Amino acid sequence: MAPLSFDATMSSLKDSFKSSGDIPRTLPNPALKVTADHNIRLEESPVLTPEKGEVLIHVKATGICGSDVHFWKTGQIGELKVLGDCILGHESAGVVIAVGNGVTNVAVGDRVAIEPGVPCGKCHYCKSGDYNLCHDVAFAGVYPYDGFLQRFMVHNAEYVFKLPDNMTFSQGALVEPLSVVMHAVERAPLQFGRGVLIFGAGPIGLISLEVARASGATPIVIADVAPQRLEFAKEFVARCKTYLVDIRKTPEENAKQIRKLFGESEYDAPAKILECTGVESSVITACFAVQRAGQVMVVGVGRPVMNNLPFMHISLAEIDLTFINRYHDTWPAGIRALSEGVINLDSLVTHVFPLEQAVEALTFSSDVRNGSIKVHIVDDEVVQEEM
């Protein structure tokens, strides 16, 4: 990815960051904001001074997530509602340019990937290790907590992680969606030599596909309603099988056809399914496709209520229908997997926009006709590599 041009005034500021730690208030800090009335706009945002335990980061790469589009278009995801202006973005990496008192894990100049959720650290869930379930988590890009689609962002230093020299900022930003999949397979472990079925060939489904390949699961089948996304999946992981979901058929009929891709016997049917769409009909199809006593892990975000789940089929087949809420303790392992080449997600980033075109980037990403997989919004790398 070629570096983009950057305002020359930024280059002259790097020494002041290093020497004094003072944060000039005149720094340009464009930020992509969503409003309660479903508008998005790029406007200047103040540059904050990191307090004790915090760092100031120049955000270098941020991926657009489907949740960013949902907050813009619908104003909410479940109980999470946009009630005022909020800066979007939570899939990011950047460079530390100032540190507050007490910060020892990172220093000015460190390249870092950023975990967006900062839990309270005091509740039962935080103390038990399930901090992703904390009721009081401050999650970047979810109102009222501003996200990373801005040039400069203050964040809790405990939730930033150094990137090795062989990783790009783009790869660092991919650790967040990778973490979603890592948490899913932690709760629904894939089995070496056993089949896995993935519903949805969007970014999370495709990352699941690559993680499944690396795990040794086989055969791997990925299903979607969009033929172009299945074509991409086949190029991304060559040994996967694909199934184009026929929306004219019932979930039972589609499930029957999918099972044939695994073999003829009951034993061959997938015991693990990663449902990465959250679409009700897809969840139902997964419940009919999975082996008895198997597990359907719902990774995708769906509607608040699903009325048509086949309850008695799930019950009689002893199917485990399970869910995830984000992730916990995944960044070090995710960084290691990417830096050591265990998995490769680079080709998922199909389109790149500069920060100044963040509105255009979100608009482009929201239109499925554009064929994007993962859109990244970037700020020039050259200046920060010199800092």
Results as ranks from 00 to 15, higher is better:
residue 294 G to N: 05
residue 268 D to E: 13
residue 317 A to T: 10
residue 296 V to H: 01
residue 291 Q to I: 07
residue 324 I to N: 03
residue 304 P to Q: 01
residue 303 R to G: 08
residue 279 V to I: 13
residue 321 L to C: 01
residue 268 D to K: 06
residue 319 I to V: 13
residue 292 R to M: 12
residue 271 A to V: 11
residue 307 N to Q: 12
residue 310 P to Q: 11
residue 292 R to T: 13
residue 284 I to Y: 05
residue 301 V to W: 05
residue 269 A to C: 07
residue 308 N to T: 14
residue 323 F to E: 02
residue 272 K to M: 13
residue 276 C to H: 05
residue 328 H to V: 10
residue 299 V to T: 04
residue 286 A to W: 04
residue 271 A to Q: 15
residue 303 R to V: 13
residue 312 M to H: 09
residue 272 K to Y: 09
residue 320 D to V: 11
residue 295 Q to N: 08
residue 277 T to L: 02
residue 313 H to D: 12
residue 274 L to E: 02
residue 308 N to L: 13
residue 270 P to R: 04
residue 303 R to N: 09
residue 315 S to C: 12
residue 266 E to R: 11
residue 291 Q to H: 15
residue 322 T to E: 04
residue 291 Q to A: 10
residue 303 R to S: 14
residue 309 L to M: 10
residue 265 S to T: 15
residue 283 V to R: 03
residue 265 S to V: 10
residue 290 V to P: 03
residue 282 S to K: 00
residue 308 N to W: 09
residue 285 T to G: 10
residue 295 Q to K: 10
residue 318 E to D: 15
residue 303 R to H: 12
residue 287 C to P: 01
residue 288 F to P: 01
residue 301 V to I: 15
residue 321 L to S: 00
residue 318 E to F: 07
residue 289 A to T: 10
residue 322 T to W: 00
residue 318 E to C: 14
residue 295 Q to H: 05
residue 304 P to K: 04
residue 287 C to F: 00
residue 298 V to K: 00
residue 295 Q to S: 05
residue 293 A to Q: 15
residue 280 E to D: 06
residue 276 C to V: 06
residue 298 V to S: 04
residue 318 E to L: 09
residue 294 G to R: 07
residue 311 F to Q: 12
residue 269 A to Y: 06
residue 299 V to P: 01
residue 274 L to A: 03
residue 267 Y to M: 12
residue 324 I to T: 13
residue 278 G to L: 08
residue 327 Y to N: 00
residue 318 E to V: 08
residue 269 A to D: 05
residue 281 S to N: 15
residue 328 H to P: 04
residue 292 R to Y: 10
residue 317 A to D: 09
residue 286 A to D: 08
residue 283 V to E: 00
residue 327 Y to E: 00
residue 304 P to T: 01
residue 272 K to P: 08
residue 270 P to D: 01
residue 326 R to Q: 08
residue 304 P to I: 03
residue 309 L to K: 06
residue 269 A to G: 03
residue 270 P to Q: 03
residue 314 I to S: 02
residue 313 H to Q: 13
residue 323 F to W: 06
residue 268 D to S: 14
residue 280 E to Y: 07
residue 282 S to E: 03
residue 307 N to R: 11
residue 291 Q to D: 09
residue 289 A to S: 15
residue 306 M to T: 08
residue 265 S to E: 14
residue 277 T to G: 07
residue 282 S to L: 04
residue 279 V to L: 07
residue 306 M to P: 10
residue 326 R to S: 09
residue 278 G to D: 03
residue 301 V to M: 11
residue 317 A to M: 11
residue 283 V to L: 05
residue 290 V to Q: 04
residue 282 S to Q: 02
residue 273 I to N: 04
residue 306 M to H: 12
residue 313 H to P: 06
residue 314 I to G: 01
residue 298 V to G: 01
residue 326 R to L: 07
residue 295 Q to A: 03
residue 315 S to Y: 13
residue 271 A to E: 14
